[in-house]
């Protein structure tokens, strides 16, 4: 009986992973298709990649997306870390549940609602204060920070929740001020979580279509906005080529980040062992 259940579970796992990866694989395979009819195989070709390299619109949009994603990730990480710290370490303060709600809601809020409300805010602010003057890179970045900081908060908060507070308490007992404790003890320990949060915020911004469509202005087409307008005209092989390049970059990035973090973790454990051995 037990054997049978584990067979069922294994089948479902295989099915689930196939379901997750077959579409991505099909995108990659058809990007090397010579035929313009994406799904009818017309021989191997790399011509869509060559076309992609000469496409200035795609390059401009990618550069704009990259700049916005970098600014967004940095802003979201700072704000998200502060919020995560407040929620995980400050006990019960007044209006804690409101802050908790404000950081969870953007995670699940349908993007059309967030996008519409941000745009209406920017329009109202422009009427009242004359800022932001028109819409573009600034408004997109502010909107992205607002929804992606929630993800950083969750990552940092859950890391802090599983972290033993005794290290921080020990430092405090030895007379370190709270700010010093944070920079010397807490920050180095939660650094992997903060980095993960930064990468997550970067990706969310890099991918976002709906919120950007609401808050962008003329001449500020990010990569997803450009891709979506191409998609509405139907499938086309150069989108496949672009998709393959993006998947490749993400995979290399994630694997590198994972390896680096694992190495650092190992080195830290080694350091701890040495420190213990040295004290004895």
């Amino acid at each position: 009986m037990n054997q049978k259940r584990s067979f069922f579970v294994l089948t479902m796992m295989a099915f689930g992973f196939a379901f997750l990866y077959i579409p991505i694989l099909s995108l990659i395979v058809y990007s090397f298709n010579a035929s313009r009819l994406v799904t009818v195989w017309g021989g191997f070709s790399t011509k869509w990649y060559v076309a992609l390299m000469h496409n200035e619109a795609v390059k401009d949009a990618a550069w704009l997306s990259f700049r916005i994603a970098t600014m967004n990730a940095t802003g979201a990480t700072v704000l998200g870390t502060l919020a995560g710290l407040a929620l995980a370490r400050f006990g019960r303060f007044r209006s804690r549940s409101l802050l908790a709600g404000l950081t969870t809601a953007p995670l699940v809020m349908p993007e059309v609602i967030t996008g519409l409300s941000m745009l209406l805010l920017f329009v109202a602010m422009e009427q009242l204060f004359g800022w932001p003057d028109g819409r573009g890179i600034t408004t997109i970045t502010i909107a992205h920070i607002t929804f992606s900081m929630a993800y950083v908060t969750v990552v940092v908060q859950s890391r802090l929740a599983t972290l033993d507070e005794s290290l921080e308490e020990a430092a405090m007992d030895l007379g370190a001020r709270p700010a010093k404790v944070f920079f010397l003890i807490t920050l180095p320990i939660i650094m992997p979580a903060i980095l993960a949060g930064w990468l997550l915020a970067f990706t969310l911004s890099w991918d976002d279509l709906v919120i950007t469509s609401f808050v962008n202005g003329p001449g500020s087409s990010t990569l997803p906005v450009l891709i979506f307008s191409k998609m509405r005209l139907g499938v086309s092989p150069d989108i496949n080529a672009l998709a393959t390049v993006l998947v490749l970059i993400v995979t290399v990035g994630i694997v590198t980040a994972g390896l680096l973090m694992a190495r650092q973790q190992k080195r830290r454990e080694l350091d701890v062992q040495q420190a213990i051995a040295g004290n004895q």
């Binding site: 077959i22 989108i239 998947v247």
Partner: peptide, 24 residues
């Protein structure tokens, strides 16, 4: 492996299904 697709573009992954599901 579960998380990895989440890191790649949502838009492109939805687009991949057009190629899989359409009549040809």
């Amino acid at each position: 492996l579960v998380m990895l697709p989440f890191w790649t573009s949502f838009l492109l992954r939805v687009y991949a299904w057009i190629g899989i599901l359409k009549n040809n």
